[in-house]
């Protein structure tokens, strides 16, 4: 019988009183799993327009015209890049790797009204077998924060656990931001489901 780790066992001990009748050999029948997803902050947007791109060769998906792929792979062990596209000129300077969905990304930029909108581009490495979903994004005049849910890609996608892709997200924010004023970028991810401001416990 697999033994519980001491830590786990102590957690059970702390809560054993509510499990007493079931004792330690029964499944923890009166407990429920710990929630893993937290609610989005009040000022977050949970479903902005987005485009996702993925580069299976492990190098950057989107670059400014003055960057090169070689620079990127040499300098970044764990790639995490963020670019704020605040005007058409900046959009025109973006260079995309030859990956599926590039035309959609270009059209997304063309469709953006930079007088009232901004496109935020964030890219990072992600295991080949995994997919990333944006849960929410929020911003101020000086900071942008994103939160993601990481999950598996479809079971029929052939992939290895030891390989990484680079994934990029283009997200359209309904605000005209000044890229020179944005000083802080932050991001987090988790395996729990994305929640919305209004999501409640579902019942069958």
């Amino acid at each position: 019988m697999p033994s519980r780790s001491r830590r786990r066992a102590l957690q059970v001990a702390a809560g054993y009183i509510s499990l007493l009748a079931g004792c330690n050999s029964r499944p923890d029948s009166s407990t429920t799993p710990t929630p893993t997803a937290r609610s989005p902050p009040n000022d977050a947007v949970t479903d902005p327009p987005t485009v996702n791109l993925r580069n299976p060769d492990g190098s950057a998906v989107v670059m400014n015209s003055d960057e090169t792929t070689e620079d990127d792979t040499e300098s970044d062990d764990h790639l995490w890049r963020h670019t704020l596209v605040a005007d058409e000129e900046s959009a025109d300077e973006l260079v995309f790797a030859d990956v599926e969905g590039v035309e959609r990304a270009r059209q997304f930029l063309v469709d953006t009204d930079f007088g009232t909108e901004t496109v935020y581009v964030e890219q990072t490495e992600l295991g080949e077998c995994y997919a990333r979903e944006l849960c929410w994004v929020r911003w101020t005049e000086s900071a942008i924060e994103t939160s993601y849910r990481d999950g598996y890609r479809d079971a029929d996608v052939a992939c290895d656990t030891g390989e990484d892709d680079v994934v990029a997200l283009l997200v359209r924010l309904p605000v005209a931001l000044d890229s020179d004023q944005i000083r802080r970028f932050s991001s987090n991810s988790g395996s729990g489901g994305c929640r919305t401001h209004t999501s409640e416990e579902e019942t069958a």
């Binding site: 079931g22 499944p27 799993p33 598996y152 999501s199 416990e201 019942t203």
Partner: peptide, 27 residues
């Protein structure tokens, strides 16, 4: 005491399938 535990357990496990409890989403 055993029955109470089972009854609470049965209700809990079948009560909801809210997103909070779904670690792996719809996959």
């Amino acid at each position: 005491a055993e029955i109470e535990s089972d009854l609470v357990g049965a209700r809990n496990w079948a009560a909801s399938d809210g997103r909070d409890h779904r670690q792996f989403g719809d996959g």
